[in-house]
Write a protein that binds this DNA or RNA. Structure first.
Lengths: 232, 232
DNA sequence: CGCTATGTTGATCCATATCAATAAGTGTGG
DNA sequence: CCACACTTATTGATATGGATCAACATAGCG
C-alpha cells in the first residue's frame, strides 16, 4: 500500500496507540482499492478475509432473508467495519456494498489477529472500538423496539441536526429509500412520515429538510441520551 | 468474596487466561450478593460502577422510553453483563432486574479497567467476549427487521429446541409475557402467534411446547445460520 | 381457599405494508 | 443540450399485522 495513506489510517483510534513496528507490519500486507458505486464488497456468510477501512466514499451494511432486505448501518470515512468478524475469525453477518465511488483499505484478517495476539495496546484499542459498536447497536435496538416509525424519523432528524451543527436545515446524506430501510420502514411509509411531521414544523424540499420549530419537534420526539447520543 | 466461588468465575472465558495475580486482585475487591426476585439491580443511565457476573438465577436486561418497556436480553449463569459500559466507563444503556432469586458477583468497574490496562490476555479475552456480544445483537437486529412476529416465534422455538437437545418438547424458560417482550410483541399477540403455528404442528400446553413436525415448522420458519446460530 | 398476576380470547383500531399509478429526478448517448 | 430511459419519490387505495381495550379463565401463591 502507498505510504501516503499511512497517516490517516494511523490517526484512527484503532491504530493510533499500537507499536510502530506492528503498524507497519499491518500496512505491508494491506491493499488500497478504488471501487465504483454499487459494488458488493462482501457477502453475508463469507469468511472474513479482510478488515476494511473506508478512506473515502461510503459503504452500506445490509442483510437479506427470505427475499427481504434491510440496511443495518452506513459506514463513512474514516472508519473500519466488520471488526468483530475479523477478530472472531467468523463469517460476516452482514453484506457490504459501496454507495458511491469509494476508496477502501483491505487488511488481511489473519494479520490483524496475529498482531492482536501480541500487541496489548492494539488489543485494548480494539476493545474500545468494539464496545463503542456494541453500544451503538443496542441503541439502534431500543430505537426499533420502543418507538414508532414516526418517532424514529423525528429523532433521526434531530440527531442529524445536531451533527450538522444545530441549524434548522438538515441535508439528508443518503437517498430516502435507504433512509427508510435504515429506519426500518418502507419508502412509501417514509414519505408519509415526513408529512406526519409537518404539524411539528418539519418541511421537506427534496433532500433538504427544514426543522422550523426545534422545540416543538423535540416535544414530539422526546429524544433520549441513552438512545440518541452517539458519543456516549 | 468467599474463595469457594473463585473456580466457577475463573472458568469463564473472560477470566480463564489472565494472570493469577490479576485474577486474585479482581476477586479481592468483589462482592457476592443474593438477591430476591424482581429486584432492580441497575438502572439505565446510571454510572457503571460494577461488572456483574450471574452465578445462579437469571437477570432481565430491559429498557424503557416514554412509558413503554422492552426486554433486550436475559442473562443466565454463568455469564457477565454490562461489560461494554464497564470498559468504556460510560452509563448503562439498559436496566437490569432479577427474574428469580439470584446470586450475583459485583466486581468494581475501576478494578476491571485497571487490570484491562495492564493485562494483555485479559484485554484479549474481553475482545472475544465483546465481539460475541456484538454479533449476538446484530443477529437480534436482523431477526427484528427482517421477520414478522410469527416468524420470530417459529425461529425462537427452533433455537430453543436445538439448545434443549433436539427433541420435540421444548420447555419455555420464562414467562410468556417476557418472551413476548423479547420477541418484540405484546402478550396477546404471542398467544395468537402460538395458535398461528398450529398448522405447522406446534401445540402448547402451558409452558410446554411440542414441535410435532420439525421439518414442517422449518419450512415455515426458514432458520438461517447468520441469524439463528448462537455459536458463530 | 381466595387473591392477584398471568394467560387467553374476542372485538376493534391503528400503524405499516402492499399494490398501483403518477410524478420527479438523474444519467446517458445522440 | 436535449430526449429518452430508468430509477427514485410521491400519492392514493387497500390489505394486513399487530396493538389496544375489555372480558374472562387460569394458575401461582400466601
Amino acid at each position: 500500500m502507498p505510504e501516503a495513506h499511512y497517516p490517516e489510517i494511523r490517526a484512527l483510534n484503532l491504530f493510533a496507540e499500537m507499536a510502530e513496528a506492528n503498524f507497519l507490519s499491518l500496512m505491508r500486507g494491506a491493499y488500497v482499492q478504488n471501487f465504483p458505486p454499487q459494488i458488493e464488497l462482501i457477502g453475508e456468510g463469507e469468511p472474513s478475509d479482510f478488515l476494511h477501512v473506508v478512506l473515502s466514499g461510503s459503504v452500506d451494511l445490509f442483510s437479506t432473508w427470505n427475499g427481504r432486505e434491510t440496511s443495518l448501518a452506513t459506514v463513512r470515512p474514516v472508519s473500519t467495519f466488520i471488526l468483530a468478524a475479523t477478530i472472531k475469525n467468523a463469517p460476516y453477518l452482514m453484506s457490504a456494498r459501496t454507495l458511491e465511488k469509494s476508496r477502501i483499505v483491505l487488511i488481511p484478517s489473519q494479520d490483524v489477529r496475529a498482531i492482536f495476539d501480541t500487541d496489548g495496546s492494539f488489543a485494548r484499542a480494539i476493545v474500545t472500538e468494539l464496545a463503542q459498536c456494541y453500544r451503538s447497536v443496542i441503541k439502534a435496538q431500543k430505537d426499533l423496539k420502543l418507538r414508532t416509525s414516526l418517532e424514529r424519523l423525528a429523532n433521526y432528524l434531530l440527531r442529524q441536526q445536531k451533527r450538522a451543527g444545530g441549524g434548522p436545515v438538515v441535508e439528508l446524506d443518503f437517498e430516502k429509500r435507504r433512509l427508510a430501510s435504515v429506519l426500518g420502514m418502507t419508502p412509501e411509509n417514509l414519505s408519509r412520515a415526513f408529512k406526519g411531521l409537518q404539524p411539528y414544523g418539519v418541511t421537506v424540499e427534496g433532500t433538504r429538510i427544514v426543522i422550523g420549530d426545534q422545540a416543538d419537534l423535540e416535544r414530539f420526539a422526546r429524544p433520549n441520551p441513552w438512545i440518541d447520543d452517539h458519543s456516549t
